[in-house]
Design a protein around this nucleic acid. Structure first.
Lengths: 347, 347
DNA sequence: CTGAAAGCGCTTACAG
DNA sequence: CTGAAAGCGCTTACAG
């Protein structure tokens, strides 16, 4: 492709000239701000079509102050939950006539956080939606200027004062844990993702369920979000006869863990029950299909945008929006093995 | 959160006032365009830090014409290949100091395509990167104005004249098919994703491999990209005794297909061999782990941005960039069953 | 080396 | 109803 000169799209003046009217008249026709004689309006519209004119929002915004860009800050874009949430935001924004930019926060380091925030705010954004799915996102939310409209997304609002689109992970984790307990398991182990601090909703819910049944509370195992980390934990769990039920921070961890178990001859769910988090479409295809907590990330993204719209409209006190993820029971969970079976496994 | 008035960030004039210099001087310090007395420069930098000033690129661009926004158009953002490619683009752009907006093209319908393109071009973009992974993307690439810098991404450039970041799917599909043939399969069936027209690279490669060995060429089966569609095809394939090897358009199709086979008592790879496309991290955890064609989507996205940079720099004739995906052999492929075994399966 | 002035593409009072 | 004028936040010749 040959590019003689930088791309210069048609501007209002081009349309005005072609239609034989003034620039403000074109603006009025396009925005419907004031009555314009029908004949002129038609000429303007024809001219717009002919030159393929599209308003330059940058210029428009500078005069009107109305911003049409939403900035999404996230620790990544390709993990399942991240990708779906972003899709939900984009979809809602597009239907409202707004655009979205994505800026990845490479790590939780101050330098990376500062760079990402700088880059994001460099564009004329109306506000920022921050995915607090990991430390990077949580730190980014904290370093945004206080006057900027901010909506956080995740399992519990970390940024004081900012409304959040939330998933009630506490309740979801509690229900999943209780289900396992009702099945007869003495306790439930937990492989947590990187977002889960001591006080994360998931961790709390898991602990609360154990406590309410006076079940022993094992140490949570800290994992990354990926299947390989799940596999590594699975290898360790395979060596432990005392583990009969595992709640995992997400589906990928659960899948990796199940494979590690399988590689060591441990059966799911006969020997060990496994529950995931997310309900990616693919996990129902697993053998055994995965019992998991279904999280509607697209809806989460849509709710986040809805909150942002209200902030931008200047609404006084915007609260948070919470949904409760639902446990989906499939094949990877069952009552614990008989004592004799359990003992065999160690051999 | 209470929002008294729309967010108004500090501007150059605020910095200038605080530093006791003129606006152009601040601009010069920030851009390093001209020498400024060290003392003034220091005062300016202090003032910038104090008010938390960030340049307004919209205003900057309007004067300088230098755009810093790249528009990505795609049929979706959350499928594995899409999400990873977007991550690759975003990463490369961020390191070059540019931002990216994402606009989803909801379908291949003219109305959806036009709306998406309108929205995307409404922002002051330096150029568009279009994912030609499906019809929606392909149509979007076609309806972009001819003067706009455009880079297409996919398995073969559809938009005439636009440079492409490509995956040589023809070669990859040929190698995968040949591998199956070498294993002893009489022919290889093919479940194609929605991007695959008659002349898609994957379809051509598959057909070429069969032709070169004089193997029969079955009709390609048209699927969506998701596991459920793969499952539906799996059900049909389970009823056919003549199918011993299946090449799938992506991993999700392959996984869904394997589950359908498994549900009907058909073993992979003993009865039927299955190959996917993409190599999502999770498929190596499958039982059997999936033989698949590894595609480096992040690199694909990075290459797309690299091409875009050269276009923006005004480089004369920017060619395309091609990588060849590699076949990764795992557990889901094996020689075809003995005749007697195959017959049994029909029962 | 520094500031006053012009202008990027729009929108919005302000005249007429 | 329509146009001439001002101004949004910057950058870039242009004087000094």
């Amino acid at each position: 492709m040959t590019l003689k000169q930088p791309y210069r799209p048609p501007v209002l003046a081009d349309v005005a000239r072609l239609a034989g009217v003034s620039v403000p008249t074109v603006s009025r026709v396009l925005n419907g701000t004031k009555r314009v004689a029908p004949e002129l309006a038609t000429r303007v519209r024809d001219a717009v079509a002919e030159v393929g004119y599209r308003p330059n929002v940058a210029a428009r915004l500078m005069r009107s102050g109305r911003r049409t860009l939403i900035s999404v800050l996230a620790g990544g874009t390709s993990n399942y939950g991240y990708a779906r949430t972003i899709q939900g935001i984009e979809n809602a924004a597009r239907h409202a006539g707004m655009s979205v930019t994505i800026t990845v926060v490479e790590s939780a380091d101050d330098a990376h956080v500062a760079r990402a925030v700088d880059l994001a705010l460099t564009q004329p954004t109306a506000g920022a939606i921050v995915l607090e799915f990991d430390r990077a996102g949580i730190n980014a939310a904290r370093s945004l200027p206080p006057e900027l409209p901010v909506v956080v997304v995740g399992g519990g609002a970390r940024r004081r004062g900012a409304p959040g689109a939330l998933l009630d992970e506490r309740t979801a984790a509690r229900e999943a844990t209780e289900y396992l307990l009702r099945l007869g398991h003495t306790t439930v182990h937990y492989v947590a993702g990187p977002s889960a601090g001591k006080h994360s909703g998931r961790t709390e819910g898991w602990r609360a369920a154990l406590a309410s049944r006076s079940a022993p509370v094992p140490t949570a195992m800290a994992s990354e979000w990926d299947a390989a980390s799940g596999y590594a934990w699975g290898e360790r769990i395979a060596a432990r006869v005392d583990v009969t039920a595992v709640l995992c921070g997400n589906d990928e961890i659960a899948i990796g863990l199940m494979r590690a178990l399988s590689d060591r001859g441990i059966r799911v769910p006969e020997d060990v029950s496994v529950i995931g988090f997310d309900d990616q479409p693919i996990v129902r295809m697993w053998r055994p299909s995965l019992t998991t907590v279904a999280q509607d990330f697209e809806d989460l993204g849509a709710r986040a945008f809805g909150l942002m719209e209200r902030l931008i409209d200047g609404e006084r006190s915007v609260g948070s929006s919470v949904a409760v993820p639902q446990l989906v029971i499939r094949e990877s969970t069952a009552p614990p093995p008989q004592r004799s079976d359990a003992r065999e496994r160690g051999a």
